[in-house]
């Protein structure tokens, strides 16, 4: 944990970072995640770049119906404990149980913001509060969100929630408040400090290890490698949104 506060003193140039990321990616395959963090550590004063595109791969074969580890972790991380009102309480990540109508085949998967390359929520937002960061993370800038909920109407994944009541005891790293729309941030506060999102961490430790987090652009990284080597799919592929969250064995 304390290593997260460490800074590399020189801003690495992108090429060097890429190189290091590649090397670290190979090391990570062997199980050591600390090297990847050290190599990719982004300086606090460095802006995110489109050289990176963060994403997730979720293997539904490893995701079991009863397991809720990712959901609990998200709720704890962002203090999404709700008011006991299921219709209005927010959910940034939820478990879907699917049954094929024709074959009866059952599967289970977490559904969350898919961090699209072409997000409909960003297209429709009148103020530009709904936006896509250069590194692919789709966020709501709550400073300019007026609470019109057009993005909630536009999202094909039902990934967004509207905050229906005044909140208190927010986490310092996860501001959220009444009258604005919110959704999965891919734990941007963690990602900016080279940590993995809370759901992925929980899935590794308490769940089925079904989620992989990484850089879609990093060809030698774990995520891009897994996507290249195995078939995967996007939910509502027909919309051609190029989602950052991909599924296996769907």
């Amino acid at each position: 944990m304390p290593t997260d506060r460490k800074r590399t003193d020189d801003a690495l140039n992108p090429d060097r970072r890429r190189l290091l990321a590649g090397a670290a990616g190979m090391a990570a395959m062997g199980g050591g995640f600390s090297i990847i963090r050290l190599a990719l550590a982004k300086n606090d004063d460095e802006a995110v770049s489109s050289l990176t595109r963060w994403g997730l791969l979720i293997d539904t074969a490893k995701c079991s119906s009863g397991c809720n580890a990712c959901v609990s972790a998200c709720n704890d991380e962002h203090n999404l404990h709700g008011f006991g009102r299921p219709l209005t309480d927010p959910q940034w990540i939820r478990k879907l149980d699917l049954v094929d109508e024709h074959t009866g085949h059952e599967s289970s998967l977490p559904m969350l913001c898919q961090h699209c390359e072409h997000p409909p929520c960003v297209d429709v937002c009148p103020t530009g509060a709904s936006f896509r960061r250069d590194d692919g993370i789709v966020l709501v800038d709550k400073h300019t969100c007026i609470g019109c909920r057009y993005c909630v109407m536009a999202c094909p994944y039902k990934a967004r929630s509207f905050v229906h009541e005044a909140l208190s005891n927010q986490k310092s790293y996860s501001p959220r408040g009444k009258g604005t729309v919110e959704s999965c941030t891919l734990c941007v506060h963690r990602v900016d400090r080279d940590r993995t999102p809370a759901c992925v961490e929980a899935c590794q430790s308490d769940g089925g290890g079904a989620m992989v987090f990484g850089d879609l652009n990093d060809e030698s990284g774990v995520l891009a490698g897994a996507l290249r080597d195995h078939p995967s799919s996007q939910v509502r592929r027909d919309l051609d949104l190029n989602t950052g969250v991909r599924y296996r064995n769907l």
């Binding site: 460095e46 802006a47 995110v48 960061r133 590194d135 800038d141 310092s172 900016d192």
Partner: peptide
């Protein structure tokens, strides 16, 4: 606020979290 939200720049000098702390 704009630097942090849009560019992921998380320098602590003018961070509201640091003010509160």
């Amino acid at each position: 606020r704009d630097l942090t939200v849009h560019d992921g720049i998380r320098t602590p000098r003018f961070s509201l979290v640091e003010c509160v702390d």
